[in-house]
């Protein structure tokens, strides 16, 4: 195989490794439904940008191999280094300047950070639309007071590989919703927020299974639903009265 062909093969491998690193970043960040990554165009853009960063790192490391590392690294090391840490290499800035006591990186790092943050934000927005639809469907009719403890414990026990730190975070986030629950003006909000919080740790599929497992006991009765509509009305009127008093 000629040198050129070998370089193309190594570059392609580096690009794919970079894409895989980007994929794993998204996979780790959006755990509520990691499979959704495959369906998103924006997620592919994120992965391709990561891949291109690795490819660029490969070209630089391959060309300046000896100059950078003093000794010539063999091909496998170059490919793995560029593939896995291409982003890291590019993220390390050429130099930084101080602005308002903050270090501002100058170099490809700044450009890449802005670009990746932007794509990440776009992907997050895209996921938000999907999350809203899913949580509304799964948590329909779920009574927060009934689900708060039971559903959380069921989800925790269904998951076998949640670290202690994640379990602690999940409990404290559910507690935080419970503590501030009297501030919500719409009853439904509490159970929707609970659903979103739990899904971040367990994913929507497990959340749905846990609800299915606990059955109708978690749902509000027809009477409670009606009373909740009246509660919302009374709360709205109380707020209107309060506003008028302030005026």
């Amino acid at each position: 195989m000629s040198n050129e062909l070998a370089d193309i093969a190594k570059g392609t491998f580096c690009f794919l490794l970079g894409c895989a690193v980007g994929y794993s970043e998204l996979f780790g960040r959006y755990q509520d439904e990691p499979v959704a990554i495959h369906k998103s165009f924006i997620a592919y853009v994120y992965m391709i940008v990561n891949g291109l960063a690795s490819l660029t790192a490969f070209i630089i490391i391959n060309y300046y191999n000896e100059a950078i590392f003093k000794v010539k690294l063999d091909d496998v090391k170059v490919v793995l280094l560029a593939g896995f840490s291409g982003m890291l290499a590019l993220r390390s800035s050429f130099f930084t300047i101080k602005n308002n006591n903050k270090d501002v990186p100058i170099g490809p790092a700044a450009l890449l950070t802005i670009l990746l943050n932007g794509i990440d934000r776009l992907y997050d927005r895209e996921r938000a639309v999907d999350r809203a639809a899913k949580v509304t469907e799964i948590m329909k009719g779920i009574d927060f007071e009934k689900a708060e403890v039971d559903l959380s414990v069921a989800c925790l026990n269904l998951m076998q590989n949640l670290s202690e730190e994640e379990q602690r975070r999940m409990r404290s986030e559910v507690e935080a919703i419970s503590k501030s629950s009297n501030k919500f003006s719409i009853e439904k909000t509490k159970s929707l927020v609970l659903g979103l919080t739990l899904a971040r740790f367990t994913g929507f599929k497990t959340l749905k299974e846990a609800i299915g497992m606990l059955g109708a006991d978690l749902r509000t009765t027809e009477l409670e639903d009606k009373q909740s509509i009246l509660d919302t009305f009374l709360l709205k009127k109380a707020e209107e009265l309060e506003k008028e008093k302030i005026k």
Partner: peptide, 28 residues
């Protein structure tokens, strides 16, 4: 007038009767 409606809704809530709740919802 708003007070009258709010008083009525509060009573209905207390009663917890399904038919009453239904009419109260229609009213609001």
């Amino acid at each position: 007038f708003t007070g009258l409606i709010v008083e009525f809704i509060t009573i209905v809530k207390k009663m917890g009767n399904s038919a009453l709740l239904e009419t109260a919802i229609r009213l609001i």
